[in-house]
Simulated scan of single mutants.
Amino acid sequence: MKYLDQSILDLLKKGGFVLYARHGEATVGRDQPYLNFQDCYTQRNLSEVGRREAIYFGQMLRYLQIPISSQIVASPFCRTIETVQLAFPYANVQIDPFGYEIFKLGGNIPIVEKTNILSNLQSMLERKPPQGMNQVIIAHSFPEGVGLGKISNMGMVIVKPKGPGKGYEIVKKLTLKDLAPLDSSSS
């Protein structure tokens, strides 16, 4: 995957996808055992690189003219909310507490809880966005082989929802670099 190929871009321009992205690089601070979503000092936050990644991500989706719903879903962490605000300054941020559940998959949780979270994830990814739009979700990576798997900083998984109870398909996983426009100067 060196770039976003034209066939994928054409599909995205028609809408109907969930664009699940991980937040930008977060290296500032630590997630405290008793983190408080209203207190960013109790959690990891975006680094300067992470802020630039978030801005670039939003710029690239606009440059590529990918239609996105004006309501962007974010996990309740400061790093995901800030990512949305930097990437989509005019968007309406919908904070979804389920992002915390996804985050918990990286920890040591009972198998019953893990199964429940993955079932809820499936329901979320089966929902089709508004006609002609793509739904952006900014949240967290997953452990290897779980959910959508490992996602790089500001990486994105293109998901095709098949409708409630019908599952979803992972169309493509992209890194932030994959969104870069092709170099048109071929000599």
Rank of each mutant, 00 (worst) to 15 (best):
M1K: 11
K2F: 05
K2L: 11
Y3V: 00
L4N: 04
Q6G: 08
I8G: 06
D10Q: 12
K13V: 00
K13E: 07
K13G: 03
G16W: 08
G16L: 12
G16D: 10
F17E: 12
F17A: 13
V18T: 15
Y20N: 14
Y20E: 14
R22T: 13
G24W: 10
T27R: 10
V28W: 05
G29A: 05
P33S: 08
P33E: 07
P33D: 07
Y34W: 14
L35G: 04
L35F: 15
F37L: 13
T42G: 14
Q43P: 12
S47H: 02
G50V: 02
E53F: 03
E53Q: 15
Y56T: 07
G58I: 06
G58C: 08
G58Q: 07
Q59R: 08
Q59Y: 05
M60T: 08
R62Y: 06
I68D: 01
S70N: 11
V73R: 05
V73Q: 04
V73C: 04
S75N: 12
P76R: 07
P76K: 08
C78I: 04
I81W: 05
E82L: 08
T83N: 07
T83I: 06
T83D: 06
A87P: 09
A87T: 09
F88W: 12
F88N: 07
P89M: 14
N92C: 03
Q94Y: 09
D96E: 14
P97H: 03
G99V: 03
F103K: 10
K104S: 12
L105F: 03
I109T: 03
I109Q: 00
P110S: 05
I111T: 06
V112L: 12
E113G: 00
T115E: 15
N116Y: 04
N116P: 00
I117S: 01
L118D: 06
L118R: 08
S119Q: 09
S119K: 13
L121M: 11
Q122E: 13
S123V: 00
M124L: 15
M124P: 02
P129K: 04
M133Q: 12
M133V: 00
M133E: 11
N134K: 08
Q135G: 06
Q135S: 09
I137G: 09
I137M: 12
I137L: 09
I137T: 02
F142H: 13
E144F: 09
L148N: 14
G149Y: 14
K150L: 15
S152P: 09
N153T: 08
N153V: 02
N153W: 02
G155A: 10
V159G: 13
V159D: 12
P164S: 02
G165F: 00
G165P: 03
Y168E: 11
V171E: 08
T175E: 12
T175C: 05
L176S: 01
L176I: 01
L176K: 02
L179R: 12
L179C: 13
S187P: 06
